[in-house]
């Protein structure tokens, strides 16, 4: 423990566990979480939202856990250090819950229906979870089909554009022309050409992520150091080897930039496409609930989408770090 106490002083984020072994930040966080529980349970809602008891129970549990951690963290070793790192965030979340709860449900300063207290969102999950799960399933299916077909085609086209001068001559001007057009601008045409709105939506999602992947893959492949090709050719490599074992790995860094861009674009397009003509899906759910001014439902869905999207971004980071182990690691 002594090494931890020593490093605490010079770290940017203080993770101190003082020598008399109370984790101060945990204590402060516990106070705010318990205060949130007390306010939620003790004060009446201006207008009833439901699930106030449940939210109070959750925050109270969190507060008690934090209190326990504040007293025992110094005995938890590496796990304790990891928790301690998040101390300032745990405080911030407690404060945020308290202010949010107080300004919405308890005082109505931020009025219904435009704003919702945290237990308003909780109420949505409690009452509508089955439909939300169904929507998540539909959205992930549409996104998965679109994203994976889009990046496969985009990557293949990108390699061809970067490798073959002939392909580049015809392909690059077209790509440069349609690349900057937001995929959603094609909605009228695609809904005409595809048999169902589902097929049209898959196409739009694929287009939105395929284009950045194609452009960046092409840039990556065309920027590969010629000397690598010379070395490989003297070693007996044929064109296939040059493309697959030299050009592609050398361009992988660019490809991943394209994949990250494509991931964000595809999510934006997914929601818009679902709003227009889907039966289920998170975008559809948002459009449907907005029409009834059920903004708590909308916020609850936005939270789900944020978690889904950042989860997928996280997965992509893991994939990148696996494939690019040979590189010096940067900050992100």
């Amino acid at each position: 423990m002594s090494d931890l106490a020593q490093t605490a002083g010079d770290g940017v984020v203080s993770t101190s566990v003082p020598s008399f072994s109370i984790w101060h930040q945990g204590l402060v966080a516990a106070v705010f979480w318990l205060l949130t529980a007390a306010v939620t349970w003790g004060l009446p809602d201006v207008l009833p939202w439901g699930s106030a008891g449940l939210f109070a129970a959750i925050t109270a549990t969190g507060g008690v856990l934090l209190l326990a951690l504040a007293l025992t963290l110094h005995r938890l070793g590496a796990f304790g250090r990891r928790i301690a790192f998040w101390g300032p965030w745990l405080i911030a979340v407690g404060v945020w819950f308290l202010v949010w709860e107080y300004t919405t449900a308890k005082t109505g300063w931020l009025p219904k229906p435009f704003f919702s207290p945290p237990h308003g969102l909780l109420q949505v999950y409690v009452t509508d979870w089955s439909r939300l799960l169904l929507c998540i399933g539909y959205s992930l299916r549409l996104w998965g089909l679109g994203f994976f077909s889009g990046i496969t085609v985009g990557f293949t086209i990108g390699v061809a554009l970067g490798w073959s001068a002939r392909f580049n001559y015809w392909g690059m001007p077209i790509l440069k022309l349609i690349g900057p057009v937001p995929a959603t601008a094609w909605i009228p045409a695609t809904f005409y050409f595809f048999p169902t709105t589902f097929h049209a939506s898959v196409f739009l999602v694929a287009l939105s992520c395929g284009i950045p992947v194609a452009i960046l893959t092409a840039a990556g492949v065309s920027q590969v150091n010629r000397a690598y090709y010379d070395v490989a050719r003297t070693l007996g490599a044929n064109d296939r080897f040059l493309v697959l074992k030299v050009a592609v790995p050398a361009a992988l860094n660019h490809v991943f930039v394209g994949l990250f861009m494509g991931l964000y674009y595809s999510f934006a397009v997914l929601v818009v496409a679902e709003m227009l003509g889907a039966k289920y899906g998170l975008g559809w759910y948002i459009a449907f609930q907005s029409a009834y001014s059920a903004y708590a439902n909308v916020y609850a869905t936005i939270v789900i989408m944020a978690i889904l999207c950042s989860g997928l971004v996280k997965l992509l980071f893991v994939a990148r770090d696996r494939l690019l182990v040979w590189q010096e690691r940067g900050l992100i």
């Binding site: 010379d230 080897f241 050398a250 040979w326």
Partner: peptide, 23 residues
């Protein structure tokens, strides 16, 4: 070559193996 021009994405072993692999 004048520069070693090793393939940075391949380990030392796989760099050495490149010629045999290509053929």
């Amino acid at each position: 070559f004048q520069d070693p021009t090793l393939f940075p994405w391949r380990t030392v072993r796989r760099n050495v193996a490149t010629g045999l692999e290509a053929r």
